[in-house]
Design a protein around this nucleic acid. Structure first.
Length: 427
RNA sequence: GGGUCGAUGCCCGAGUGGCCAAAGGGAGCAGACUGUAAAUCUGCCGCGCAAGCUUCGUAGGUUCAAAUCCUUCUCGGCCCA
């Protein structure tokens, strides 16, 4: 466990500090004793995604170092939409959707942190609780009065949007004020001295610091981490299928784990540092070992194991690993029934009748492995499919030449890493 | 409101009466090589087993034949008011 003294250095070593208010002052404050710190998460979707993970882990790091984390759910800010990081106006979510999103996200925010009673107990807050009751005039007089438009216009996120063809609505323009007010509220009523966020949040954070200084006459701290990027240009946490969600119903633990497993070598060290709680020295050792034999993917394995366990729990992480072991390991023909059952729970599975096995093309379309009959035929022609681990010969039209595994399962594979399991109904 | 230019497949973009299911690039998919990575090379990339069918903003029209010509409408850029 990390002592308070080392936290700042540790963050620095992990490359987690992009911007911060006066570093020496911050480092001193952190070592002086426990501090309360918050990170906000807006309910823009019905689940958090991999991009939100750094923030959650950051709070955890602070908690482990003896500080008190405040995950904040943006029940109010989610109503408005942050103009940062996008070129066009956001569509407003209706209240029902927002409430549903909020409920799900709150559950996810509770996963990584320790909420058991104690001085470092995490506290989940929702900015709707203090923003909703505030009247327009209160808002204008109390919050708006302490911020000049000049200052707001100077913020990067506002500037880019004003220059864009879509413009910027007053609603989104006001977002910064709401966030600034959040910080002030938390400072005033919960003693939260520090706010953190991705580097795109810097403007909003400093707006809060200003707000606090003007209204409460005290200083506070801000810290941003660099946005996680992938060297291959792909958006972090976006797979081909879409976002990498933390909700197991939207992205299964198996798929989740696969994302990290398949990361390019160039990214894996950075991700280990920024996303896992492994000590820096241990990661350095691991990387040396990894470079000795990169084919073993030791670093990816470690990353995938840690992050999956963090989000989905130890048991789910192990199941996902076992499933991958069957799929990418040896011959599926030798897999045990138990192992196959794990696979069935992790990989998309379709129930079929024995008679369906006569038409391979139809099955490929039905399982989604091919988009059309023609696509399926082309794939077969190009030897892109495997049944139970054996490449499908272009002349083959049926599956039933293969013996079902344990008389029950047929494993379809497209290319390198796309699988689908057929379960033959017992009737 | 007037004028003008434009709208092509997932994206960009060529095509200005037949040789066009439509060049080229990107993305994507597969194969080879590998390490569940990257790079590279190869193939595929509207639907259909095929005959063929449906596509080039929309709706009509001219023609043996239209993405290409004419008209309507919708949307977008630019210029003028």
């Amino acid at each position: 466990m990390l002592g308070a003294m080392d936290l700042f250095d540790d963050l620095q070593a992990r490359g987690l500090i992009h911007d911060s208010t006066d570093r020496t002052a911050l480092a001193e404050r952190l070592s002086a004793g426990s501090i309360s710190v918050y990170v906000g998460f807006d309910p823009t979707a019905d689940s958090l995604h991999a991009g939100n993970l750094v923030g959650q882990v950051m709070l955890r790091r602070f908690q482990l170092a003896g500080h008190k984390p405040f995950p904040l759910a943006g029940g109010a800010t989610g109503m408005v939409g942050d103009p940062g990081g996008r070129s066009d106006e956001r569509n407003l979510l209706n209240r029902e959707t927002l409430q549903a999103n909020l409920a799900k996200i709150k559950v996810q925010l509770e996963r990584l942190l320790d909420f058991s009673p104690g001085p470092q107990q995490a506290e989940l807050v929702d900015n709707a609780t203090w923003t909703e009751p505030m009247g327009v005039l209160d808002f204008l007089r109390d919050v708006g009065k302490h911020m000049t438009v000049n200052q707001m216009l100077a913020k990067e996120s506002v500037k880019t949007r004003i220059e864009s063809e879509h413009g910027l609505s007053f609603t989104e323009f006001s977002y910064m004020l709401l966030q600034a007010n959040d910080f002030r509220h938390l400072r005033e009523h919960h003693g939260v001295e520090m706010q953190m966020g991705g580097s795109d949040q810097w403007g909003n954070i400093t707006a809060g610091i200003d707000q606090i200084r003007r209204r409460l006459g005290v200083a506070s701290f801000g810290l941003t981490w660099p946005l996680l990027t992938r060297t291959d240009g792909q958006k972090m946490g976006k797979s081909v299928a879409g976002a990498l969600w933390l909700d197991p119903d939207k992205t299964s633990p198996y798929q989740f784990r696969q994302y990290w497993m398949q990361l390019p070598d160039e990214d894996v060290e950075r991700f280990l540092l920024q996303l896992t709680l492994r000590p820096v020295a241990e990661i350095a050792e691991l990387m040396t070992e990894h470079r000795g034999d990169p084919g073993k993917r030791l670093a990816q394995r470690a990353l995938a194991a840690d992050v999956t366990a963090m989000v989905h729990g130890r048991a789910a992480a192990i199941a996902a690993e076992q499933a991958a072991g069957v799929l990418f390991g040896g011959d599926p023909l030798t897999a045990s029934i138990e192992a196959l059952e794990v696979v069935a729970s992790e990989v998309p599975t379709t129930m079929v009748e024995r008679a369906d096995l006569a038409d391979l093309v139809a099955l490929l379309v039905r399982t989604g492995l091919a988009t059309s009959n023609g696509d399926a035929r082309r794939g077969i022609q190009q030897r892109g499919f495997r049944v139970n681990g054996r490449q499908v010969d272009p002349s083959q039209t049926a599956v039933h030449t293969e013996k079902p595994l344990h008389n029950r399962y047929i494993l379809l594979r497209k290319g390198r890493s796309t699988f689908h399991l057929l379960e033959i109904s017992p009737t």
